[in-house]
């Protein structure tokens, strides 16, 4: 059974932030509840107050703004999956949304919830990391922007402070010559916690030389990580088979895998290399 809690339903963002501030640190925002309700039931979290932010208009909507795509924190995974703007500017995010849990969960779970929960196995951080996303954190004190790479700290640990609400995720509209890809390995094809997640994005010049690379790896370290050495190894180079292989090797070296019921550390490291190689090869073909 669920433990007892007070459920508050604010009408505006300002009201929500007041409520969170008033009851901090015993207040937790509730959006889709797909993590929170399970945790409450299993008594992993026992907050006294839940602030229901699911209906707040300020957290909804996906729009373009000053060369950025801005996505409300309350955007559900299903909305992300069906949004034309995302389809145009960040199809990689839809690749992750497509294999996110199951259709029921996708209609409830929000991107903010997926990020704030701080799971190294979460599906949206790898594509958002390769998009150079920032998160907007609002509180009574105001709004601050934090790069996602700084926001993710450890297992269930983020830079989100008590009484802060993740209101939006934003990223620069990717350049024309940029292509990205995502791949998840799970132990089944739907509704599976990731054994590993990999996302890559590459921006190439017309002559095929790599201008910018992003490689993000999930479920292979205490948080979703960027494989920076691998990224840098490709800079100023054409994406040859050799260069890709080297980057993949470096990406695998960046992992800090554990063995658990879903896979061995060795498996994760090894398949990280395979997937980075495959995804880079795929995007190298797509960019031209």
């Amino acid at each position: 059974m669920l433990p007892e809690f007070n459920l508050l339903t604010p009408q505006t963002l300002a009201e929500a932030l007041d409520m969170l501030a008033e009851s901090a640190p015993d207040a937790v925002p509730l959006a889709g509840g797909t993590n929170l309700i399970v945790d409450l039931r299993d008594r992993r979290q026992c907050p006294a107050v839940l602030v229901n932010v699911a209906e707040l208009a300020e957290l909804r909507g996906i729009r373009q703004e000053n060369g950025h795509v801005v996505m409300g924190g309350g955007t559900t995974i299903a909305e992300m999956l069906n949004d034309p703007l995302i389809a145009q500017h960040a199809p990689v995010l839809q690749d992750a949304a497509r294999i996110f849990a199951n259709p029921l969960v996708r209609h409830r779970a929000t991107v903010a919830g997926n990020l704030v929960y701080g799971s190294p196995a979460a599906n949206t951080p790898p594509p958002l990391l390769v998009l150079d996303a920032e998160v907007e954190l609002a509180s009574q004190a105001g709004v601050r922007r934090v790069p996602l790479d700084d926001f993710l700290v450890g297992v269930r640990e983020t830079a989100c402070r008590p009484a802060e609400l993740l209101t939006a995720v934003r990223w620069p509209t990717p350049a024309q010559h940029s292509a990205a890809a995502f791949r998840k390995v799970g132990l089944r094809k739907s509704d599976a916690i990731a054994v590993l997640n990999v996302a890559v994005r590459v921006t190439q010049r017309a002559d095929g030389v790599c201008e910018q690379t992003r490689i993000a790896l999930g479920s292979v370290a205490p948080r979703v990580i960027r494989a920076r050495a691998a990224e840098e190894s490709l800079l100023g180079q054409p994406l040859t088979e050799t260069a890709i292989a080297e980057a993949a090797r470096l990406a695998a070296e960046a992992t800090r895998c554990i063995s658990d019921i879903r896979g061995s550390a060795d498996y994760r490291r090894r398949v990280t290399e395979v997937l980075v190689r495959r995804l880079l090869t795929q995007v190298a073909g797509e960019v031209k």
Binding site: L187, R188, K189, S190, D191, I261
Partner: peptide, 28 residues
């Protein structure tokens, strides 16, 4: 054949819910 296993370590079930104990879905 493909995925089902109640993992038991020293007598303790490590697949205590349907999040860990996987059965095939229609997608599989």
């Amino acid at each position: 054949a493909l995925m089902e296993e109640v993992i038991v370590e020293e007598g303790i079930i490590r697949t205590p819910s349907l999040a860990e104990y996987l059965i095939p879905t229609a997608m599989d």
